[in-house]
Amino acid sequence: MLVAGWSLSLQTHCKGFLKWHKFMASKTPISRSIAVESTPSAIIRVCKHILAELEANNFSRDDIFAVHLALEEALINAVEHGNKADADKEVKINYLVDPDKVEISVTDNGNGFNPNIVPDPRYGENLYKTGGRGLFLIRSYMDVVEFNERGNRMRIVRYKKKPHASG
């Protein structure tokens, strides 16, 4: 059952664990895998879950906003374009949160796409189109954006923004 993986990973995230985790955040890398059904509510749950990990690891508001935006877009692409909104098809999410960065990969069951031929939404008639901004936003807000050869897995990384060095 697709939701089983999700329930299992949630079991380790009771409130007490999160409080403890907040205290230990800078010393504890977290690496997890989740599989969810292709539905909007599953996307929202995954986002909330990963953003809570970032908050517990003292990522800034800017970092959390950026990851939220990119992750939401990546998951929407996986569900709508990759899995054609078929709730029975799963989206796999692997993520790693460590003191310096968050790394997430999102895999769908689709045939993949060529990210190099997606038009730039900022110019010409594309600016007036109602869609086509998701990948551009992901690239704008993440430090690393990579795809597998098939184009059905996206790996995104955001490094925690450090305070400006003095002197």
């Binding site: 906003f65 939220h68 935006l69 939401e72 877009e73 929407i76 901004r133 998701g134 936003l137």
Partner: peptide, 8 residues
């Protein structure tokens, strides 16, 4: 917070 769907 908003996503690209809201921009659309």
């Amino acid at each position: 917070f908003l996503s690209s769907s809201v921009l659309g």
